[in-house]
Amino acid sequence: MSDREKLEARLIWERPEPASRPAPEPLSREQIVRAAIALADADGLAAVSLRKVGASLDAGPMRLYGYLSSKEELLELMVDAVYGEMASEGPLTGDWRQALRAMAHRTRRAANRHPWFIDLLGGRPHLGPHALAHVEASFAALNGTPGFEHIDRIMLAVGTVDAYVLGALRNETSKLESGMNQGQWEDASGAYIQRMIATGRFPMLGRVVRDATHPSPDAVFEQGLDCVLDGIAARLGR
């Protein structure tokens, strides 16, 4: 067997589950993944381990190894399950702007339901069936649209929106990682910021504090997305 064949044999997406056993309790990859997602939703990714997932299912970690070989595979299965939730919202419809906007908001809703999800995006592509279906639907929504005749333009537009969404959501979640909500964080840091502005070294930050409207996170996300889509439209018009 070649190195490539050995690698493909290790991919969980094409590796069958063990035969179902009635005792001590029936188990499946879906049950394992749902248990892991419940732990991550409650306490973050740090709470996810094969031992803890097994304990929540009254199964030892060695039994779980019959269904997956590592925590990394479990995380991949969790990501794909969230992509499945996104796909359940139905096809992307409308013109290219509507389709890309819907794609962005689906990802944001998924990240709001599962805050850990954004930490697992980026880097190497996800190869699960639901993740691949999401990419396929995103590309297909632009296929045949004037200006997107070449696949490179489709990939650039989808990739640009994905990059914006990833950055915007990480910015949203980073403000809450201290354990404080936005208001608490502002109260805790406000006096320090005011002292720094009073030094006169940061006049633009002073304008931000005094004059900026500071819209809600929903509005900020929508406005940033509009900028990205306007940029894509301008590029198409050139």
Rank of each mutant, 00 (worst) to 15 (best):
A188F: 13
P24T: 00
E89T: 15
H214A: 07
A198S: 14
A233L: 04
L169V: 10
Y192I: 14
S174L: 12
R21K: 07
T93R: 15
A163R: 13
E89M: 14
Y164H: 15
D152E: 09
G200I: 11
E14K: 08
R109V: 15
E149C: 12
S28T: 02
V79I: 13
L236K: 01
G183T: 08
F117A: 07
L142A: 07
A188P: 14
V79F: 02
E73I: 02
T213G: 15
A233C: 08
E172T: 01
T107C: 06
A55G: 04
E177Q: 07
I12W: 05
S70I: 00
D41Q: 02
R113Y: 05
E186D: 05
V82C: 04
R195G: 13
H130I: 06
P26A: 08
R153P: 00
A191R: 07
E149T: 14
A140F: 06
E222I: 03
R29K: 05
D119K: 10
R108W: 12
P146C: 08
R238Y: 02
L229S: 07
H214I: 01
F221M: 03
F202D: 09
R207D: 00
L75H: 03
D3A: 10
P61F: 01
W116M: 11
A163T: 03
A198F: 05
E186C: 11
E186G: 11
I232S: 04
L92G: 08
L169N: 01
D95I: 06
E5M: 14
I154P: 01
N181Y: 06
R15G: 08
T160A: 14
P61I: 04
R113G: 13
T107W: 09
A234P: 01
L92R: 15
D41P: 06
D41T: 15
Q223L: 12
E177H: 03
A40D: 03
W13V: 09
G167H: 06
L205G: 07
D162R: 13
